[in-house]
Design a protein around this nucleic acid. Structure first.
Length: 209
DNA sequence: GGCCAGGTGTAAA
DNA sequence: TTTACACATGGC
């Protein structure tokens, strides 16, 4: 294997993600829900996250403003299905408060937040921060997760660092944009290519477990 | 019944 | 810098 385009082709040939639930794969991408989902999905299956998100929606709490003011115990209770609920509740509320404090609203956050700002928040590590950047803010960032590392290991590629792996994935895509446009039969944005590629890897990983 | 999921923070060596 | 552990529910 030369670069990450081999992985792209491998998954493409297996027919992954012909139909997407969202243009960027993550449900309700480009909205505040991505921020909430990024925390809720940590070390948890997505179907549990969906339950928690539905609980929040039903309680009219799935918004930046509402989450910044919600009662801690109530929030914990609503997101219980997603696990680590006390920790996640605290971090979700604090993050919502900080977004309002530093950016005012989600649209402004989306335009101007940096990776450094996200990484400085309690509860956001590299994967969650990059997920928010890629799927919430439409930035040109490739998200790396446990599925990515596992899939690459299958091809005998192992990486020490998260950022090393992320850059390797991004580089392989950047070097093969013409071929990728050919596969898609159109010039998709880099953000969309990264977003869908990571989504493919996750869907493949889920099927294999 | 044990292992693990679309991780992260903290503490100790 | 590395390692160990806590956080917690629910599927298989």
């Amino acid at each position: 294997m030369r670069d990450s385009f081999e992985i792209f082709k491998y998954l493409k040939d297996l027919g992954y993600l012909k139909e997407l639930r969202d243009r960027l794969w993550w449900p309700n991408s480009r909205t505040f829900e991505v921020v909430v989902g990024a925390i809720l999905t940590q070390q948890t299956r997505w179907d549990k996250v969906e339950k928690a998100l539905k609980n929040l929606k039903d309680a009219n709490l799935l918004s930046l403003e509402a989450l910044s003011m919600v009662d801690d115990k109530e929030l914990s209770k609503l997101i219980k299905p997603s696990g680590f609920y006390n920790t996640k509740a605290k971090r979700l509320k604090l993050l919502s408060k900080n977004i309002i404090k530093d950016f005012g609203n989600f649209e402004n956050f989306k335009q101007s937040v940096s990776r450094e700002w996200l990484l400085s928040q309690k509860g956001l590590g590299k994967e969650s921060s990059d997920s928010i950047l890629c799927y919430g803010c439409e930035r040109e960032v490739f998200v790396v997760d446990a599925y990515t590392a596992k899939l690459l290991k299958k091809f005998d590629y192992e990486f020490e660092e998260y950022d090393e792996l992320r850059e390797w994935m991004e580089h392989g895509i950047l070097s093969n944009l013409d071929k990728i446009y050919e596969v898609y039969k159109e010039k998709k944005s880099l953000n969309e290519i990264y977003a869908r590629f990571h989504g493919k890897i996750v869907e493949f990983g889920k099927d294999k477990r």
